[in-house]
């Protein structure tokens, strides 16, 4: 028998509840924006990696190796503490007026995740028989047009399961953004803990919220696959 008496009432009411909920909102925001960035960069890097130009292929390869093989936390600190030293002054001035830690978090998470997404997309593309590319090129499509209209739509379907994994990792990884002061869910749970001393409840609630978000993402993708993408007719 547990001796501890859970005190949910304190944590799940009043300002503590408000904090936790605002944390959920920030987690969703940072995850969604990073995801958009990660998908954009991921597709781009995958295309360069598969493309006909040797030097762009090597550049993309270097990008992948670098961002996949360094810790996310280091990358977050790099963008937060280091990037202003290499960015142009005008950009820094503008960033200072914005929510800089949030932006740094989005960039770090987005770039980090894009490296994994690029690899997933690349294996998806490579699974499409080369005859599909030949058929599209014979019809007059250029390389990019063939990719966009023939290869990628097929590759996306087989890439969905690994992509869902990356989405979920991204959401969970977003908790690291608390280290640079982004007031997301883990940050807020920590805050609730230090004010209320109800650490067990605060972090249990946070864990539950992450779980629900993950289940929601998995469910949404599942629906998307079933209803929006039409049956990927077998070959």
């Amino acid at each position: 028998m547990l001796k501890y008496h859970f005190d949910w009432g304190t944590v799940l009411s009043g300002r503590y509840l408000d904090w936790l909920l605002s944390g959920v909102v920030v987690t969703l925001e940072i995850s969604a924006l990073s995801l958009a960035l990660a998908m954009f960069l991921g597709v781009l890097v995958a295309m360069l990696r598969l493309g006909p130009l040797g030097f762009l292929r090597r550049l993309a390869q270097a990008y992948l190796e670098f961002f996949r093989n360094t810790p996310l936390l280091v990358q977050i600190f790099f963008w937060y503490f280091g990037s202003y030293k290499i960015l142009p002054q005008a950009l820094n001035d503008w960033l200072a007026t914005t929510n800089f830690e949030f932006a740094a978090g989005v960039v770090a998470l987005g770039i980090y995740t894009s490296a994994f997404i690029a690899e997933d997309i690349r294996s998806g593309v490579r699974a499409i028989p080369k005859e599909q590319m030949e058929a599209a090129r014979s019809a007059g499509f250029g390389y990019l047009g063939a990719m966009r209209h023939v290869i990628l739509p097929q590759a996306v379907r087989i890439t969905i399961p690994p992509l869902v994994n990356q989405f979920l990792n991204l959401t969970k990884n977003s908790s690291l953004a608390m280290t640079i002061g982004v007031a997301e869910l883990t940050y807020q749970a920590r805050q609730v803990e230090s004010y209320s001393f109800k650490g067990l409840e605060a972090f249990s609630a946070a864990a539950l919220a992450y779980l629900l978000i993950s289940l929601f993402i998995a469910g949404a993708v599942n629906l998307y696959t079933r209803w929006v993408l039409r049956p990927a007719a077998g070959r």
Binding site: E131, Q132, A135, R137, S138, G140, Q154, A232, R235
Partner: peptide, 20 residues
Amino acid sequence: LNRLRAEVGFVFQQFNLYPH
């Protein structure tokens, strides 16, 4: 080349229709 290919139809042994 793309323009030339657009004017030359090619039919493959294995059809190579777009399955999606």
